[in-house]
Each structure stands twice: as C-alpha cells, then as structure tokens.
Design a protein around this nucleic acid. Structure first.
Length: 455
RNA sequence: GCGACCGUAGCUCAGGGGUAGAGCACCUGGUUGUGGUCCAGGAUGUCGCGGGUUCAAAUCCCGUCGGUCGCCCCA
C-alpha cells in the first residue's frame, strides 16, 4: 500500500519532538521532578490507558465523547487513553487500602490525551505534572502543594512578577453566592455560571443568573465581588467583613494565608473568588496559576478534594494536589525569553569533536580514540563524511557547538595530539596518554554551565 | 459538535487566471592542517490532497486532510 500524504503527517493535535523540542520538554520535566523531590514527593507511574469506566467514576458519562476510547480487535472490553491521571492515582491509593502510610506524597509526569479541537495552549496530547498529597487535612498541606508548584516555576526562571496563584475556596464562594441570593440547591449551577463569567456576554450572564435565583441586584453584587481580585496580603477576615460574608466561610483561607506566609509565598498569590474550577469535585481550597497579565490559559490548577480516594473504593482520606501542563507553560517561558541556552535549555553540547587530517596514523587512531574517550565519560562526536578536510571538520565541530576539537595529524609521530578550545581558539599540544585526563580537567571548569541532566 | 483565517523550496514567506519566486539554510569552490565572517557558483518543488470551471488553475468553486485562533468543554 502506497503511503498517502496525510498519513505521513502527525494526527491532529499531536506533536513531533525534534531534538530541540525534546530539550525544552526535558527542561520542564527536570524542573518539575526537582521541585517535587526536594519537597519529599515520590514519583509514581501508571498505564497509558485504563478501563473506560474508570474515567466515568469522577466525571460521568459526559466525559466519553472527549476521550480516545477503543476496543481490542476482536475484543469487547472498552478502554480509553487517560485524559487525566487522577483516576489512576486514586485507584492506586485505594488499592493499598489502609496499609497506605499517611500522609502519602506522590507525583507523576504522564502524557494525557483528550479528543478535543486543538487551540492555543491546548493539544490532544500533552504532558502534565501531577502532585498529590494524601492523608493530610490541614492548610499546611494545601500550602505545601502550592509551594511545590511555585518552586518548579521559580526553577524555570519565573518570579512573582510573572505568575500568580489565584486562590479561592468552596466555602467562601458558597458564602458569597448565598449572600447574593442563591439558594443552596442551585449552588452547583451557580458555580458553573461563575466559572463562565468571563466568557459569557453580560446580558446572557444576567439571564442565566436570574434562572438560579439571582435578581439584578444580586447579579451586580456577584459580578463586582467575583471580579475583585485582592493581594494575598489582604487578611481573609477583612474580605469577609467588607463583603458581609460569614467569618467562618473564610476561616480555611485565613489559616492557609498563615501557611503561605511562612513559606514566603504571599507575593505569588492573590484571593480570587471567581476561581471555581468545577467546585462539585473540589471540597475546599481551589486555585489556578496564571501568567501575571492573564493572557494565557491556566498554567496549573489544583485544590483540595477530600472525597477522592473514597470515590474510587478506598478508605476516606483527605487529599489535595494539582496538575500542571507543558503546553501553556512552554508558551509562557518562550514569551519571557526563558527557553534559551543561557537558561539551561538546549541539546547536549559535545565535549570533543575529533578531527582527522586523513593520514594513515590519524585514521588508525581515530575510532579507538573516540571509543576510549567515550568510555572515560566524554561526549564525543566526529564527522561521518568521507573527506578529511580539516577546515570542513572544524566547521562541523563548530556547528555542533563542541567545546574542544582534537586534531589528529603529523604530531602523532611524537605521540602528540593537538587540542583546540573552540570558544577561545587556543591550541595546546597534549601527549596522547594524558588526553582524557587533560580534557576532563578542562571540562570541569565548564561544569557550572552544563545542563544538570548530563553526567 | 460550530465558526473564521491559513497551507507555495528544508525554514520564513511573496505571487490572487497566462513560463515557479525571494531571503535564510544547504552543497561546491576560493582554502587538500584550522571553524563561526566574506566572495563566487550550484541544487531544490505533484504550489497539502481529490474533484470541478476554463483554451489555460498555485490563483476561481466544491470536498477533504492538516495548521492557527475563537466557541462548546476543560475531568
């Protein structure tokens, strides 16, 4: 069968990763993994696809149309590529039952799939960093997962002027909606409406608000309060007082505020009761991380979901965590100029590029030398072209950004190898037997600027 | 699922019924033992794919596959 052209393109919304793309992805994953491990989280993994029904437990039948689901040829079991990691995590936690030590701190970096129309910041396959803290009910746990997220972003060069954690709380939001006139049994609809507030034209918003018991005055008040974002340095009690909300509705936020302050995170945070993120699922704190200007989609989203593990058949336990995707994050880093070699992003630079003058002695030594230097732990490259023009080989070395070129030429007769520092142009004559040690000594000086993933 | 715009050389794009173009990148030479700069020369296309209109289609029309950006949704 001849290959038709469209089959030779990546499927819609899927990405190819060339070396420079992998360098970016590894840069993100390095920062994620480092932040998680420093905060005491352990990495887990799970299957790329699960039983289709697993994904219905948390999200209902409506999720199915947004999944890539399938049956094995000839089989009748429904599977689906995972659209999120949380069900797998909850299944894993539930399967340990009461033997799971609490608290348990887990993270994962899965690729996730969803059958949606791709658009800016949303693709059909992406990597998402998931961090979950199981078994800890207090605000210190909420603060800790926020701290992990911020630590990773800081590791990528983003500061408090670049990103903002917008924090809300189910209790505070419910108090707010009650004060605006929403009755308790329409609360879920009200959350849904608030979540769409910025995307719905004002007149449509007013019409829908009326349907859940909000009069014009209530809508106006809701709109004003929900649009109001305050620095996290504002005490939640003050907000409750100003907005005439019950003080107990913000008690969790007040406790969280203290924990954030201990960690120096208040400059990164703000209170934003307009964040609801499907509050039917979250049970307490809810937050999203956005770029400070709010021009991109959310970089991360998380919160507290104490009913999760029980929902998946495990013991009841408190839980909080978040997910952070690679797509929006990379867009922001690119826009901020944080994806260049100065920030540790790039394909690995060769330590040495071996250049042969082409004479017999050089050709005989060429491959054994490359092998011994590689065995010594060096990143070694050389030309594969037939021509042994020294100038062309140096050009190739330069194109690969090699740190040193070693030139095998007539000096070999005296056991001498010429080593050229490609950035300074300086050349040294090094005895053949000393070469590996000499290079390692000189390369140690470059260690600080070498990506940390390299040995 | 709905809508808008886009698809031409490896890359970024110009050309909008009449011979397929530019810049960058690439290759060769100047320079068979010294790179990034420079100079000269060279190669490169089913104009995404399929169909239609026309004497003639990269160009106009329909469909399709991709891409981008909005909606829906965002677990």
């Amino acid at each position: 069968m001849a290959a038709s052209k469209h089959v030779l393109q990546a499927p819609k919304g899927m990405r190819d990763f060339f070396p420079e793309d992998m360098a970016i992805r590894q840069h993100l994953e390095r920062a994620w993994r480092s932040a998680a491990v420093r905060h005491g989280f352990e990495e887990i993994g799970g299957p790329t696809f699960e039983h289709l029904d697993l994904f219905k437990i948390k999200s209902g039948e409506g999720i199915v149309s947004e999944l890539f689901s399938f049956q094995r040829s000839g089989g009748d079991t429904d599977y689906a590529l995972r659209p999120e990691f949380t069900p797998t995590l909850a299944r894993m936690a539930a399967s340990k039952g009461r033997s799971l030590p609490l608290p348990t701190k887990w993270f994962a970096i899965p690729d996730l799939f969803r059958a949606e129309r791709p658009q800016r910041g949303r693709l059909r396959e992406h990597r998402q960093w998931n961090v979950d803290l199981l078994g800890a009910p207090g605000p210190d746990a909420d603060a800790e997962v926020i701290a992990v997220a911020i630590a990773a972003l800081r590791g990528l060069g983003l500061g408090s002027s670049d990103v903002r954690v917008r924090i809300s709380h189910r209790g505070a939001a419910a108090g707010l909606l009650s004060a605006c006139g929403v009755v308790d049994d329409r609360m879920a609809d009200a959350f849904s409406l608030v979540d769409r507030r910025e995307k719905v034209p004002p007149d449509v918003f007013a019409t829908q608000a009326a349907a859940i018991g909000l009069d014009a005055q209530g809508v106006a008040r809701l709109d004003q309060i929900a649009a109001c974002r305050l620095p996290a340095t504002t005490p939640p009690a003050t907000i409750a007082e100003q907005q005439r909300l019950p003080v107990e509705s913000v008690s969790d936020l007040a406790a969280l505020s203290l924990e954030l302050d201990k960690r120096g995170l208040l400059p990164f945070c703000e209170w934003d009761l307009g964040i609801v993120r499907g509050l039917a699922y979250y049970t307490g704190t809810v937050w999203e991380i956005h770029d400070a200007e709010g021009v991109f989609r959310a970089i991360a989203g998380g919160g507290r979901y104490d009913g999760l593990v029980e929902l998946f058949g495990g013991p009841s336990m408190p839980a909080c965590g978040f997910g952070m995707g690679d797509v929006v994050l990379a867009l922001l880093l690119e826009e901020r100029g944080l994806l260049d070699p100065a920030h540790g992003v790039g394909t690995p630079r060769p330590d040495v590029f071996i250049v042969s003058s082409g004479d017999d002695k050089a050709e005989a030594l060429f491959t054994p030398l490359a092998t011994s230097l590689r065995d010594a732990g060096l990143h070694v490259r050389h030309t594969f072209k037939a021509g042994r023009n020294v100038g062309k080989q140096l050009k190739e070395a330069s194109g690969h950004h090699a740190r040193f070129a070693i030139i095998l030429g007539e000096e070999l007769a005296n056991g001498i190898i010429v080593v050229k520092d490609m950035s300074s142009g300086e050349q040294a004559k090094v005895p053949h037997g000393d070469l590996a040690a000499w290079l390692q000594r000189r390369l140690a000086g470059h260690a600080a600027e070498r990506p940390s993933c390299e040995p």
